[in-house]
Design a protein around this nucleic acid. Structure first.
Lengths: 134, 134
DNA sequence: GTTCCGACTAACAATTTTGTTCGTTATTGC
DNA sequence: GCAATAACGAACAAAATTGTTAGTCGGAAC
């Protein structure tokens, strides 16, 4: 998380952020477990130990870090559960996070449609006239 | 691009790929310049030098690498332009790539709506009854 | 009164991504 | 013939991400 500020990498990242919000959006969801965590929280696994159980291979340290990053990006919020003993902590999607879920669903569907190289072709409409003529 | 195959990192990546296609989808679009390249090609900048001009800070080597990766994921295809002199090369979106563009547009819109932390809140419907009752 | 669970943080190491340096091929313009 | 443009590839270095080791803190179970 220590960024170098003046590295070419960081400068290029900033450049892309300015070109289009698309790039910052992708930066927010592209961590190793991040979008799966958002998805799991949306499905109700909104506690640390529930997420840990769901994402079997994740370590607690990595999970904590990803959650903190999602929180920094205001996709989730951390909250103490008031009535619980011992006082537990839950994670909730913000409306930003909530709006993200259907987009993730689209990505999921897209991935499924073309899984394993099925159905891939160049649409004829993209072909040049030259190539058709020759 | 030399992957270690047996690293925890690679194993976890594979695990996520199996959990949901969402994760492989995100892996395909999360390279530094990748989604911006897809976008630019969709807008007609479908030649190497056009992309280079558009993405001012990118080096030719990095651009070539990103293009190759997009090609491996069957999001774009490389093609010689038949009638051109000198015979140039163009990049076309496959239908897979074409279907991706509206999703990127959604992500872009999502990014814009919540840019700079505007409009972020936890929806009331997510609150626990306990918290409301207390 | 020690150990376990939930929920973490900090520092370090392994792995991966990104950028850089150098070189290539083929053609065009001068 | 010589530089310039288009379109790259390989190998290496810098930077960033991901995973690991060790440890914390408060309550609960035994």
């Amino acid at each position: 998380m220590k960024r170098k500020e003046n590295s070419t990498n960081a400068i290029n990242e900033q450049f892309l952020f300015q070109v289009c919000e698309l790039n910052s959006a992708i930066a927010m969801i592209s961590g190793r477990w991040k979008s799966q965590i958002v998805y799991s929280i949306a499905e109700g696994n909104n506690r640390f130990h529930l997420l840990k159980r769901e994402l079997v291979n994740i370590s607690e340290q990595v999970l904590g870090r990803q959650l903190k990053e999602l929180e920094m990006h205001a996709i989730i919020v951390k909250r103490e559960i008031p009535g619980s003993v011992p006082a537990g902590i839950e994670y909730l999607l913000t409306n930003k996070g909530r709006d993200l879920v259907p987009i993730l669903q689209h990505l999921c569907d897209w991935g499924k449609v073309y899984a394993g190289g099925k159905g891939i072709a160049v649409p004829e409409s993209d072909m040049h006239e030259e190539s058709v003529a020759v």
